[in-house]
Each structure stands twice: as C-alpha cells, then as structure tokens.
Computed example of a mutant assay.
Amino acid sequence: MVTRTRHIERLIHSHPSQDGAGVNIKRIHRFDGELDPFLMLDELGSDRPDDYIGGFPPHPHRGIQTLTYIVHGGITHEDHLGHSSTIQAGGAQWMHTGRGIVHSEMPLTDSQGLHGFQLWLNLPASEKMSEPRYRDVPSGEMPRLPGTQAELVALGGRWSTLDGDSVSGPLDALAGDGAVSHVRLEAGGELTLSVQSEMLAVHVFEGELQIAGENVAAGQLARLGAGDTLELSSRGGAQCLLLSGTPHREPIAHYGPFVMNHMHEIDQALQDYRSGNFTE
C-alpha cells in the first residue's frame, strides 16, 4: 500500500492571555477557519494557585462545543441544566452548548498543581440552536494505543496504527467528525498513525518532538498538510495533543463566548442573554 507522510504546513505559537477571574493561560485561537472545526486551544498550567484560583465564574456560551481535559489537578463544572461534576487527572468534560448554556468551571489542585486544556469546536449552522448537552468521562474510560516507547490516550474519535490496531475515544459526538488524543513519547519513542482526516494538527506541550523528522517545540502547534500517515518521534521525550476533523467551511462570526455564522446572530445572542431569554 502506498502511503503519503504528512508534513508540517505551518507552525502556530501559543501566546499568554487571561480569562475568567484572572486565570493565566496560553492560548491559540483561529476564528478564521484555519483549524476548522477547531476554533481555540487554551492551556492552563501552573504550580502557583494565584495563576488560576479565581477560576471561571458563571458565564454563557452559544454555538460551540467545549472539551476540557485535565493532565494534573482537577476542575468542577456546574451549569443551569443541573449538571454538577468534578474530573481529576486524565479525565475530560464535554459540553455541547447548542442554543445556550450558562456554566462555571472552578479549578482544583494536586501535588503537581493544575495543568489542563480546553478546546473549542465550532458547531455547524444546522446545530447552532440545538439542545445543549453535557458529559464527563473519567481517566479509566480512556482507551490506550501503544507505540514504541509511546502511548496514545484516545479522548474522542478513532485512532489507528499502520498495523491495523485501533481505539475509539468515548467522546463520540465531537463536531466536524472531531477526534482528540493525548500522546506521550519517552526518549527515543516513536508512534506512526494512519490519519485520513482533512484537518490534522499536533500541539506540543512538553519537550520536543519530530514530525516526519521536523522539530516542533513545546508551545507550538503544527498544522499538517495532506497525506494519510503521521510519523511522531522524540529524542528526549515529549507530550502532545492530536486534533483532527472535517472542516465545516461555513462563515464564522465570533464575539466573546458566542460563535455563530453571522453578526446578526451574535446580536441576537447578546439580546437573549441580556433579556434573560438565553436558555429558553
């Protein structure tokens, strides 16, 4: 079988930012469709409580999905639908905001502080005003796919090696056929995957890895070009998130916590929230 190795098309750097009640984060945002169906990636990582202890008090969302994944520490979610849950290291929370949800997220620590990620995925126009939903998944329900001194943890979507081994993450309703996984590579580790999706990105958050021999350092997201084979390796050890999906190719209008297709829909979201009709 002839395969085409995927190479780096562009490197995108995260930048410092703040959100919520003064939470320090590293952010990558692409509301121009470059990572479609993904819109944003926030990394929370600190052993200083002052960097994150204020958390994210109640706030609204419309038109997106969020996926929150915890590496160390934990986070507690509450929303207007009555959901209340806490995830710890290795667990994930998924929220389909649809037409509207109001929620809060408050951080917890462990001996290594807090380290986690939140991804935003764009909903297609047909689902922007759908019913909101929520789900959390503990670490023990995440399947693993081994490599050579490497391991892939599947959060959502299907992940396969060239040998035909595959796993499917429990978050099976990610927008745009989205798939997300966490890869750990030890020094000298290697992992080769078969990835057919149109959009594929690798975000390195620890160490340095090589993608088809090209270096990617911590804090960089590599947007990959066309192909069907992903070759990951690391000389000294690394960790990364893999993101794949099918672009919606629809207009994107964004304001704060709202993502719609046109600005008049953003105006309506603001009006609904201010008038108290947001969750009706």
Rank of each mutant, 00 (worst) to 15 (best):
L221D: 01
L200R: 01
R48G: 03
L145D: 13
E151V: 15
A21R: 13
N122M: 09
S234G: 09
A222E: 06
M260A: 06
G164P: 05
G213R: 09
H13C: 00
W159E: 10
L174W: 12
A218R: 15
G237E: 13
E151N: 14
V180Q: 03
D267H: 06
E186F: 07
F278S: 08
H264S: 07
D177V: 06
W94V: 04
Y273C: 07
R223D: 05
M95V: 14
S111D: 15
G54L: 01
L39K: 02
T3Q: 06
H77A: 05
P37E: 09
A201F: 04
C240T: 15
P170S: 11
L81C: 02
G176Y: 03
N215R: 14
N261W: 12
E280F: 08
D79T: 08
L242T: 12
A179R: 04
E265K: 06
P251S: 05
L145A: 13
V195D: 02
T148F: 01
E78A: 11
I101G: 02
I266D: 03
G113K: 04
R62M: 13
T97Q: 08
E151F: 04
G237Q: 11
G20F: 06
T148Y: 05
H264A: 04
F258Y: 15
T5S: 09
H96A: 12
E34K: 04
G98W: 05
G237V: 10
R99S: 14
P146Q: 07
G73E: 06
F117S: 06
Q196D: 15
G113E: 10
L242C: 13
S84F: 09
A217F: 13
G207I: 12
I28M: 01
R4Y: 08
G176E: 04
T68L: 13
G113T: 04
N261H: 11
L242W: 13
L171C: 11
G219K: 00
R48E: 15
P251A: 02
T279I: 14
P170E: 10
S85N: 14
P49F: 14
S233F: 00
Q65F: 00
L185P: 08
Q239V: 01
I87G: 06
M106G: 05
L242I: 15
G207M: 11
N277Q: 15
D19V: 03
G178W: 02
D165C: 10
C240G: 10
C240E: 11
L35E: 01
V183G: 06
A150M: 13
H103L: 11
G189H: 07
Y69H: 09
Q239N: 10
S160C: 06
G20I: 07
G169K: 02
N261F: 10
G188S: 11
G156M: 08
R30Q: 14
